[in-house]
Write a protein that binds this DNA or RNA. Structure first.
Length: 192
DNA sequence: GGTAGGATGGGCT
DNA sequence: GCCCATCCTACCC
């Protein structure tokens, strides 16, 4: 598998919505497994009460207030971990939830980790599923995504695509905001 | 094809 | 004590 360069830190030092859109089509890599990011959600912080960072700096949310290009991983529903990418310039909160991947490398390893997935489309088409498929855990909290075993890279062949926009999934606060972004027509998104 | 309900535990009020 | 940025199974068209 040949991929382009690792995204530099400056890629992430921008507005949360712009980052959520720009991450579509880029490739999330963990060890020997990798997938194209096909679905994201923006969590800008501030007035957005759905953002964990909107209630201020706590032990859980501290990485969101730090330097961009790091991993914010949190535990939810007693069972699952969700993977976010810290964005915005350092000191300003903002993160992007990665909700679905199109698997492109390490498929056998993903299938072993996700025996419940009957089809390839189900390996990583949800935020809890993709962390299991790639082996991302709370130990990756704060990981630097510009170096090491968990990184984001440019794709080998950048594709052009339309971006579909919808409200975010599974939240109650600010539920109507159009902050979910998908590669239009992609089969690997969590839902239309 | 669709959905209701349960699993399961950390974070925060 | 309540609330979750979820997923899977069972069950029902």
């Amino acid at each position: 598998m040949a991929l382009g360069p690792i995204l530099p830190r400056r890629f992430y030092a921008r507005d949360t919505i712009a980052a959520a859109r720009a991450l579509l089509g880029r490739v999330l890599v963990k060890g020997a497994t990798a997938g194209i990011i096909v679905e994201t959600e923006a969590y800008p912080g501030g007035d957005d009460l759905a953002s964990h960072s909107s209630r201020g700096l706590t032990n859980r949310t501290r990485v969101i207030f730090g330097a961009p290009g790091h991993a914010y991983v949190y535990f939810v529903y007693g069972m699952y971990e969700c993977f976010n990418i810290v964005v915005e310039p350092e000191g300003r909160p903002g993160c992007v939830l990665v909700r679905a991947l199109e698997p492109i490398a390490g498929l056998d390893e993903m299938r072993r980790r996700r025996p419940a997935a009957r089809r390839m489309e189900d390996l990583a088409n949800g935020p809890g599923k993709l962390t299991i498929a790639l082996g991302i855990t709370l130990r990756d909290y704060g990981a630097d995504l510009t170096r090491g075993s968990l990184v984001v890279r440019e794709p080998m062949e950048p594709a052009s695509f339309e971006i579909a926009v919808t409200p975010r999934v599974g939240i109650s606060a600010c539920a109507a905001l159009p902050l979910r972004f998908l590669i239009a027509g992609n089969r690997f998104v969590s839902k239309i």
